[in-house]
Amino acid sequence: MTGHRNSIIFWGGVAVFLVAVLTMTQIVRNEYPFFAGYVILQFIALAVAWSILGGYAGYVNFGTNAFFGVGVYTAVALFKATGAPLVVQIAAAAVVGMTLGFGVGLLTLRMRGIFFSIATIALAIIIETFVMNWRFVGGAAGIQIQRPPVMAPFDSYVKMLFFVQAILAVTAISIARYIQNSKVGRGLQALRDDELAAECTGVPTLKLKLIACMISGALISAAGAPAAMYLQYADPFSAFNLTYSVSALAMALIGGTAHWIGPVLGAILLGSTQQFLAVTISSEVNVLVLGIMLVLFVVGAPKGIIGLLRPRYRLRAGGKP
């Protein structure tokens, strides 16, 4: 019963949020809030998507940047080749991200823990190297993107991107929430705790890991797809920047990965702090803050913000009562 009521509250919240976002794009004149808001929404999507694999399944993916960059360059290549509209670019990025996720999922067959993490870094660098040598999309020098005309009801492209990213973030959250409450979520939690015990209790671990990798990958790539349009530019170094990996991981762990709300909180907190610091001090300092917060939280608050807010989780972490 409470599950049903929760669903009504959740979807009501989603509807209110999207309507509010849309209304905001129609009323607010100044473009800056949309520029900043886009980045925060993007981080929400990344952190939530990351935690499907990293949080639920316990496989620490350092290759968020690989998926992000693949999303960016799928969109760029498609746009340059066919002039495909943004929706198609995003869909294509999701498909490519899902395929890459399948590949990463197969890696989990042979490796876990630090080996898996290192392998995902390796994947990111290898893909980046290929893109750097890919002339069609500008190689290492990067490529300028000419935005197409904006579609009604929006009066600026950035506002439209803001709305699109809001939908992507909400999609990521809805999927993460669905997984968390489903059998798949319980299976992932079991295999995170103990893969062999999970297998012997009937959990199809490989299948679940593949599902988690593919969904996580598709969502990250989709969130990255509009980035080229947002910046009107793409180059391999920024698209495959390791900062995306650290950010996604840090926001998820700082928020807490036991519940989908954790990464959302982490992304809002860190994303807005970063936006503020980047404007007031420097972009280096905001990356520093990210690193320090990450270290402080993994050392001092293993369950993240939601662990601090909900004493039940603290009790769990505390050992024998």
Binding site: S117, A250, L290, G291, I292, V298
Partner: peptide
């Protein structure tokens, strides 16, 4: 495992 890796990753970044 998860947090230990994240810890060193964070240190590297700092």
């Amino acid at each position: 495992a998860v947090r230990g890796i994240a810890f060193f990753f964070g240190i590297a970044f700092i």
